[in-house]
């Protein structure tokens, strides 16, 4: 199993059976799926909403806002993790200092990265902060292609903003939405790895261990390469299957405008 030795022994599916019996892997699986679900739903909803606000209304400073929203995307994950570690710091962190205004100055500090129940949501917060601008720009580009006349005639017939959003905008950018759903799965699996390695290293006590960080640790730090690669194969198949299922579920008739 060790890659350093030249004697390689064929172990069949031993690595895989070890994997499915490992409690650590189930915890990792839970954390990863939870992150995929939270990050996808929140980022998707917010990005779609903000994109439609920015494209549908004539606003001052539209371009400035778009430039600002995309900034997190050009920063290194290490930079973002360092900044968010400062935000989440229990004693001298920005977030706790801000919350003191509401919770009173004697309130116990919240351990954003130290509490096993909270830490995964803190991580999700940083990931959403990073991802939202990218998907916004993506949705804005396809929303800009929808002809204005559709909204005008809908408005004349008395359709409100909500109706227009759900009956015109969403159906017409459906293809784009489906593509981004696949992106969400793939990129959450990857980004959660990058965030975890710098922000929490999987801690406290494995509460933020995700697919690829577990794989990296087993393969690189722990030198059990065979086992690590077995994790990689399972994760790859899982992400492929999930993307396929989502793709099948969201299949609709293609609309033209």
């Amino acid at each position: 199993m060790g890659g350093y030795t030249d004697n390689k022994t064929f172990v069949g599916f031993q690595n895989f059976s070890k994997l499915f019996q490992s409690e650590k892997f189930y915890q990792t699986f839970q954390n990863s799926v939870l992150l995929i679900v939270i990050v996808t739903i929140v980022t998707f909803a917010l990005a779609l909403l903000f994109a439609s606000m920015l494209t549908r209304e004539k606003l001052k400073g539209q371009n400035f806002l778009r430039v600002v929203f995309y900034i997190p995307n050009i920063l290194s994950v290490v930079v973002i993790s360092a900044i968010f570690s400062a935000i989440f710091d229990p004693n001298s962190g920005l977030l706790n200092a801000f919350l003191k205004l509401f919770r009173g100055f004697q309130a116990e500090p919240i351990l954003w990265l130290g509490d096993q129940k909270i830490v995964i949501f803190s991580l999700a917060g940083a990931m959403i902060w990073q991802a939202i601008g990218y998907y916004m720009v993506m949705y804005m580009a396809s929303m800009a292609n929808i002809p204005e006349s559709l909204y005008e005639s809908a408005g004349l017939e008395g359709a409100g903003r909500m109706t227009q959003f759900f009956q015109i905008t969403i159906p017409l950018i459906w293809t784009n939405i489906r593509t981004t759903l696949t992106f969400f799965i793939i990129s959450t699996i990857n980004m959660s790895f990058l965030f975890v390695m710098t922000m929490t290293s999987g801690g406290p006590d494995g509460a933020t261990e995700v697919f690829l960080s577990y794989m990296y640790k087993e393969a690189y730090t722990n030198s059990s390469y065979g086992y690590g690669m077995a994790i990689g194969v399972i994760v790859f198949l899982f992400s492929f299957a999930l993307a396929g299922i989502l793709n099948a579920v969201t299949r609709r008739e293609h609309l033209e405008y």
Partner: peptide, 10 residues
């Protein structure tokens, strides 16, 4: 508000 949330950390 969103712009502020994005800009302040940076």
């Amino acid at each position: 508000a969103l712009a502020v949330i994005i800009l302040i950390p940076v």
